[in-house]
Design a protein around this nucleic acid. Structure first.
Length: 518
RNA sequence: AGGGGCGUAGCUCAGUGGCAGAGCAGCGGCCUUUUAAGCCGUUGGUCGUGGGUUCGACCCCCACCGCCCCUACCA
């Protein structure tokens, strides 16, 4: 079917017919490439004209035509393959009438195969002196503008293929994402972890609190949820005797989109038997430092206008974070003992709300933020909310935040000395939550009790029923273990200096356009 | 979901209450070492969509659609 711009589409169809009339197949099956443009540039980018002349390096290579400068009976062009640009020179005398005619029929965006030898032009650019030319694929649609490229963010995401052709930074970002995944696998493989895959379609969406997507299996006549976390299955594997497992794959959460959220996102989850969350704190610091080293060549990386140092971590309890980031204008900061006391968090939240209201009265302008709605919340939930409101986005340098309230951590083991807290920490960098880890609760009776509490409280983010098979698995005995989840998309944002999650997901979810098929 | 911003040629962008613009891409020429090639000529528009105000709307007003940013939910 013809696409816009129609005039150019039809023009290119006409050229395609002329190519066929020359006896050429515009879509041949293969082309023997001896080296890619990237390999040629890498191997000969430094060779001078005399060296190239004496060596006479012959190449067969291919790529997409990006620029074209015709000078009558000769012409220059750039092709790009494997991420690198290579100039080619096509001369009537060198290729003959028929091939030169084919050359004149080419459009920007066509994919061509060429053979010839390397030389340097007057301006000293490495160039292929073409002696044979073949069209490998006709492009019926034009490329975006060669100088400014494709800037419209929406178009870049909807037509990522164009973005990748035209914007080399985008290619670099996704190559780096792949390198991060390789680095993660290398890290865990080297430590004796087994990579596994667990169900993404589940009958009970557990392992996190989030609204799930629902889908349907026809033959079983069964509603299924797309998983919100692999956690409960990975821990079944701990029961089964895989003492170290990891999984890297998609989770699906039916929530809004933002620069830090996409409904499907990639998580790494790993579990390590006979360990607790302290071991994972150490492991986390090693992991981030080794990734930074592997990806950026240093433990320090640049993100926006800040320098992040992964060789130097801050460890902070949730209560300390609230105390430290309490707004000075709102009066004296609450101390951690106050936050730990029964009813303390509620009193602190009330004081915060009163300050907000006074502030709103004083300056008729917009208030500093919405009031905290804490009436139906427990102390632990309020503590979590206070942290998110006051401190989360201020944790820029790598931080391990620990001492989470038990009420917001149904899968974590309590601290032996304080049952209102669990052995859990989260990783914050650049104001983003990147990871979540804890000592895994393996007492089946306590786990069942906590699940039942959750279900009783209800809400769309909580499963409607208890995952009894998981409780049964725990009842067979799960070794003491620690586990962690790391958001790969956000991790990639950090290491590619990207400030929207949509820049690190090849095809982020966008609302379909009504005329998308026209 | 709420607030703010944006939407003009295939792409990148100007523009004004009074004939719709440029560069690139395209098309026709000239050109056998150019590189944002150049020179001459030229095609291309439902100005996001639908209403309204006006003698007249791309411009002002309203609604809707899409994207971006902030806030909320969330990782």
């Amino acid at each position: 079917m013809p696409f816009e711009p129609l005039d150019q589409y039809l023009q290119r169809k006409k050229k395609l017919a002329e190519v066929k009339a020359l006896g050429d197949d515009p879509y041949p099956h293969k082309f023997e490439q001896t080296s890619t443009p990237a390999q040629i540039v890498a191997a000969h980018g430094q060779s001078d004209a005399a060296t190239l002349e004496s060596q006479r390096v012959n190449v067969h290579t291919a790529g997409r035509l990006l620029t074209l400068r015709l000078h009558g009976r000769a012409g220059f062009a750039h092709i790009r393959g494997d991420g690198a640009r290579l100039q080619i020179y096509v001369k009537f005398d060198a290729v003959g009438e028929r091939a030169f005619h084919l050359f004149q029929l080419l459009d920007l965006g066509d994919i061509v195969g060429i053979s010839g030898h390397l030389f340097r032009t007057k301006t000293n650019e490495l160039t292929v002196w073409v002696d044979a030319l073949k069209l490998l694929s006709k492009a019926l649609l034009p490329l975006p503008e060669k100088w400014h490229g494709l800037a419209d963010v929406e178009l870049r995401h909807r037509q990522r293929y164009l973005d990748l052709i035209v914007n080399s930074r985008v290619r670099q970002t996704f190559l780096r994402r792949a390198e991060i995944l390789r680095g993660l696998r290398a890290f865990f493989d080297a430590r004796g972890y087994v990579e596994v895959e667990t169900p993404m379609m589940q009958t009970i969406a557990g392992g996190a609190t989030a609204r799930p997507f629902i889908t349907r299996h026809n033959t079983f006549d069964l509603d299924l949820y797309l998983r919100i976390a692999p956690e409960l299955y990975l821990k079944r594997l701990l029961v089964g005797g895989f003492d170290r497992v990891y999984e890297i794959n998609r989770n699906f959460r039916n929530e809004g989109v933002s620069s830090e959220h996409n409904p499907e996102f990639t998580m790494l989850e790993f579990y390590q038997a006979y360990s607790d969350y302290r071991d994972l704190m150490t492991l986390t610091e090693e992991l981030f430092a080794s990734l930074a080293q592997r990806i950026c060549g240093s433990a320090q990386i640049t993100f926006g206008d800040v320098r992040l140092d992964f060789s130097c971590w801050q460890r902070l309890s949730m209560r300390e974070a609230i105390t430290q980031h309490w707004p000075v204008q709102a009066g004296p900061a609450p101390d951690t003992a106050h936050l730990a006391a029964l009813g303390g968090p509620r009193a602190v939240a009330t004081r915060y709300n009163q300050w907000l209201q006074n502030e709103a009265v004083r300056s008729s302008a917009a208030s500093r933020g919405p009031l905290l709605e804490v009436s139906s919340m427990s102390d632990g939930e309020i503590t979590g909310l206070l942290f998110e409101t006051l401190a989360e986005h201020k944790l820029i340098q790598p931080t391990l935040l620990y001492d989470f309230p038990t009420d917001i951590s149904p899968l974590a083991k309590c601290r032996p000395d304080d049952r209102s807290l669990v052995e859990r920490f989260e990783v914050f960098v650049a104001g983003m939550e990147l990871g979540n880890a804890f000592s895994e609760l393996n007492d089946p009776e306590e786990q069942e009790r906590r699940f039942r509490q959750q279900v009783a409280r209800g809400g769309e983010e909580v499963p409607r029923e208890v995952d009894l098979d998981y409780i049964r698995a725990l009842s067979h005995g799960m070794p003491p273990a620690a586990g962690m989840g790391i958001g790969i998309d956000r991790l990639t944002m950090l290491f590619t200096d990207s400030h929207s999650i949509r820049e690190v997901i090849l095809f982020p979810l966008l609302r379909p356009q009504p005329d998308a098929n026209q």
